[in-house]
Design a protein around this nucleic acid. Structure first.
Length: 572
RNA sequence: CGGGGUGUAGCGCAGCCUGGUAGCGCGCCUGCUUUGGGAGCAGGAGGUCCCCGGUUCGAAUCCGGGCACCCCGACCA
């Protein structure tokens, strides 16, 4: 490709509305361009990167016996009504009315369509197992897109779905996908951490997320460096210790103005761990009263899983009228009409300070079980920096991560809903066991851009770079130099090496800076100076110095260099 | 959805407070000079000042409403 023909221009100044470093460089380099919030066009350079990522995905999915398919983007509403997600999922699911008042959805994921394929096509256990995958557009009407490709509304996902006769068979297959995913990420130059995760709207029994550890990540991860435990904070457990003491008598004390745990603790000169914190949520029109120890935070994911509701939101003050709750001075004592959920630690703890449900007063020595009854005792507290690992007791660490992939054991949630059954060897009809696996293609590219760059620009790994070589031609107005540059371009192209040949009438600095900005791994320079020595200058994007090779040996040297860099761990 | 911010040339911005012929830098086009890390000079093209309404002799500027985009939060496979 000649640079003079390439569509898309590089920008010296980034558009003002881009914030993250990797995204700025993708914009400046002309890889992608936003059309609307979270909706992007891929320009030729970006498309080449994406195409290479997808090729790697196809190779790895085919290697674990995946069969590529292409499923529709537009689905009839009925299918989503059958599984119930039409009703469960909010405005994130884009709906529209087609001709003849037919309600349709834009696919945000494809479990429904796959389960439908299964019910139409699978009859016997002899047809199982198998795995289907596709690389295709999804639309999720996110309330707020951000971070460029990291969180888009329209995006490309490689999604895969496996079908099994038994849960045990899925258990055998699941690790193969796990390993294939790690291979994909490694070949693309990132090394995500696998963490346990919440099943969220997908349902099912078990889920893992592949998290690229980047500061711009929106997920908080809980990591134990000692034993390797790693989980999304939404589900992370930790060891909770408490001293059990003899219960002391309840006592009301005046605590004027102490409406927060911090104020209360300093007023009473006690630690926050000697208090109980009350937080209120609404699940539909049901009020949930959550109690955790004062030094901890309620984990909404854990809480909603414990209560068994899909959606929770903080309660507003007016929704608490009539319950007896006095915000700032609340405890479950004397409260009515709410579901009281108590963290397992609070249930075991003794003599905590809690609200008196009276403005300006608290109660000393409250004890769950004696002074109030929990409707539910569960782990509903968020793990925090320094908390003790539930497996080994060592301190946990928090880190930020971007979810580049996930794998879910769905079980029979979708197949049962749609009646996708098969006959087992005994002639008994059973629901097909299903799992789904996803990787966000754009997000993966966004992560590579974010994590692999310097002050001059992007640094693509050879495996997914838009071109392997950036050929800088200088002094091209000089006939012999131009001929030599054209000749080198032709030889590289004939050798099927991907070259972006900068044949523009620009100054050297412009070309060098563009080569750096675009992040192409290997740079070759030919000029009257190098031609005089019958040489070509060669420089890696990652190196600060260049070398020289004789013109006749260029092809071989480039081939060898690229082959060396193509190895699976080339970017380590 | 709550809070904050921004919409003026392809990109970055000034002008708005105090209403009166729409500007600067980069980029783009032409010419000359220059030529190994984002050149210089000269000339030039390019604008529904986000949209609708109002006030006014006159609105980029003041007022009202809307929309879009960005940031923090809520939300999120």
């Amino acid at each position: 490709m000649r640079r003079s023909d390439l569509f898309g221009e590089t920008l010296r100044q980034a558009p003002a509305d881009a914030e993250s470093g990797g995204y700025v460089l993708l914009l400046r380099g002309g890889f992608v361009q936003p059309l609307a919030a979270g909706i992007f066009s891929y320009l030729p350079l970006g498309w080449r990167v994406k195409e290479k990522v997808e090729r790697i995905m196809r190779e790895e999915m085919n290697a674990i016996d995946g069969q590529e398919v292409q499923l529709p983007v537009v689905h009839p509403a009925e299918l989503w009504q059958e599984t119930g997600r039409w009703y469960e999922i909010g405005p994130e699911l884009a709906r529209f009315t087609a001709r003849g008042d037919r309600e349709m959805v834009l696919a945000m994921t494809h479990e429904e369509v796959v389960a439908d394929l299964l019910r139409r096509n699978v009859r016997s256990y002899r047809q199982l197992p198998f795995m289907l995958y596709q690389i295709q557009t999804k639309f999720r009407d996110e309330p707020r897109a951000r971070g460029g490709l990291i969180r888009a509304r329209e995006f490309t996902m490689k999604d895969a779905y496996s079908a099994h006769a038994t849960a045990a068979d899925l258990d055998r297959y699941y690790p193969r996908v796990h390993d294939a995913y790690l291979a994909i990420f490694r070949r693309c130059g990132i090394h995500p951490l696998v963490v346990e995760s919440d099943v969220g709207m997908m349902g099912g029994s078990m889920a893992h997320e592949f998290m690229d550890l980047l500061p711009i990540g929106e997920d908080l991860l809980v990591i134990c460096d000692a034993c390797g435990y790693a989980a999304n904070r939404q589900v992370a457990t930790f060891r909770k210790a408490t001293r059990e003491e003899e219960p002391l008598p309840l006592e009301e004390v005046a605590t004027p103005g102490a409406a927060t745990i911090a104020d209360l603790a300093s007023f009473l000169k006690i630690g926050p761990e000697q208090t109980a914190k009350a937080t209120f949520f609404m699940a539909g029109d049901r009020c949930i009263f959550a109690v955790v120890r004062g030094d901890m935070e309620v984990n909404e994911t854990k809480l909603s899983n414990a209560v068994g509701v899909g959606e929770l939101r903080p309660a507003r003050a007016e929704e608490l009228t009539g319950t007896g709750i006095v915000p700032g001075y609340a405890s479950p004592i004397g409260v009515t009409g709410v579901t009281v959920v108590v963290d397992d630690l609070v249930a075991r703890a003794s003599n905590l300070v809690a609200g008196a449900n009276r403005e300006g007063y608290h109660l000393l020595n409250t004890n769950a079980g004696r002074d109030y009854q929990a409707d539910l005792v569960a782990d509903i507290a968020s793990a925090f920096e320094g908390a003790a690992c539930s497996s080994c007791g060592e301190p946990l660490r928090l880190a930020r991560g971007v979810e580049v992939g996930n794998i879910f054991k769905l079980g029979t949630r979708y197949t049962a809903a749609l009646g996708a059954t098969f006959l087992d060897p005994d002639g008994v009809a059973r629901d097909i066991v299903m799992a789904s696996y996803g990787i966000g293609v754009d997000r993966l590219i966004g992560c590579v851009a974010e994590g692999s760059r310097d002050e001059k620009g992007l640094i693509w790994p050879v495996s997914i770079a838009p071109f392997q070589i950036y050929l800088v031609g200088l002094d091209l107005e000089q006939e012999d130099v131009r001929e030599a540059a054209e000749d080198l371009y032709r030889r590289l192209t004939d050798a099927r090496i991907e070259v972006l040949y900068d044949d523009r009438a620009e100054r050297a600095g412009v070309k060098f800076n563009d080569a750096d900005l675009l992040g192409i791994p290997l740079r070759l320079t030919i000029s009257k100076r190098t031609l005089g020595r019958d040489e070509v200058e060669i420089k890696w994007r990652t190196e600060s110095t260049s070398g020289s090779i004789s013109r006749s040996a260029v092809l071989e040297a480039v081939r060898a260099a690229l082959a060396g860099a193509e190895g699976p761990d080339a970017t380590d």
